[in-house]
Amino acid sequence: MVNVLVTGAAGFIGYHLSQRLLAQGDTVIGLDNLNAYYDVSLKQARLAQLENQPGFRFYKLDLADREGIAQLFAQESFEFVIHLAAQAGVRYSLKNPYAYVDSNLVGFTNILEGCRHSDIKHLVFASSSSVYGANTKVPFSVQDNVDSPVSLYAATKKANELMAHAYSHLYNIPTTGLRFFTVYGSWYRPDMALFLFTKAILAEQPINVFNYGRMQRDFTYVDDVVEGVVRVMGKIPPPKASGNTSPGSRSSAPYKLYNIGNNQPIELLQLIETLEQCLGKTAVKNMLPMQPGDVPITYADVDDLMQDVGFKPNTPIEVGVERFVQWYRSYYNI
């Protein structure tokens, strides 16, 4: 039983992680600002399920609130911090860049400062497969150079990795960054492709298929991501553990990076075909070119994750999509 701060607790991954930690007897202090980037009622529904359970406490707080975050760390005694809150979305970063600066840069600095002034055992934070940007070598490895982001969102996630390493080095904070690969599942975000496709197909409306359906994604089921996070949380990096920060790094910080992905990318058209089978309906496809900020493929090398914590995501896309469809039909009573 440990005290864990989960930022973004009302979000998609944060909700599932909080459920898992509560189920194993941990105390979860959840933080979220419940912003309106997508349907707030969905966030509130997730939160309602968490608040009904013993061991959960919630703070409605914005990451960019420096005094509020400092006060939270001063009055609570966290053993672990799992930082998942962020302004998400690649395309939205083209329209509202300051939201990413406030949440992902200023907000993350506030979390790092909180950890600096607290006796935490391990900071685990969410990075993203988007940091690989224009990389063409696949599968993507944490050993690869990631200096070519193609969206502001990706750039802020790369910045988070650098900021976290600096704090880990300066203040000896055990820190692990997790590069998530296209996470999906029940209680999904409404702005993501699988959710949008499902909603449109059931309403017999056309779906927008970018890059003419040829882009590939390493779709990773949320339960696999949560399993990875929990295992990594207990794997506290010692000093001199960060040889994977960059090729030739001499860092001695207690810092690690891992990919968490399904290690099996599929084409977008295959995802749509699987969804059509689960829904029993055929999609009307509006084939479109690649959108600015998108990448043609994501593909996770998870050898380090396997070696260090003995786990790799393995939920087949057919199983994951079926679970999502069952949740969607139940939640929206369709």
Rank of each mutant, 00 (worst) to 15 (best):
F181Y: 14
L162H: 15
T176M: 07
A241P: 02
A134F: 01
E76K: 09
A9F: 01
I334R: 15
L31M: 11
G293M: 00
R20K: 13
L279S: 05
Y132L: 06
I272S: 04
D62W: 02
L94I: 07
I272A: 04
Y38T: 05
K281A: 09
R329V: 04
R66A: 11
I297Q: 14
H83E: 09
K43S: 09
S186A: 14
K240F: 12
Q216W: 09
V225Q: 03
C115S: 03
K60W: 11
Q49M: 13
R116G: 02
Q264I: 03
M215T: 06
V142Y: 06
Q19C: 15
R214A: 11
S148R: 08
T182G: 09
E204S: 13
M1H: 14
D32E: 07
H165G: 10
A283K: 00
V222P: 04
F181G: 03
Q307P: 10
P206D: 11
R250W: 15
N35R: 05
I201H: 02
R116D: 02
F219Q: 13
V229T: 12
V101S: 05
A64M: 07
L31C: 05
Y171F: 15
R250Y: 15
A241M: 01
Q264L: 09
I173F: 06
E227T: 15
T156Q: 01
N135M: 10
G261Q: 03
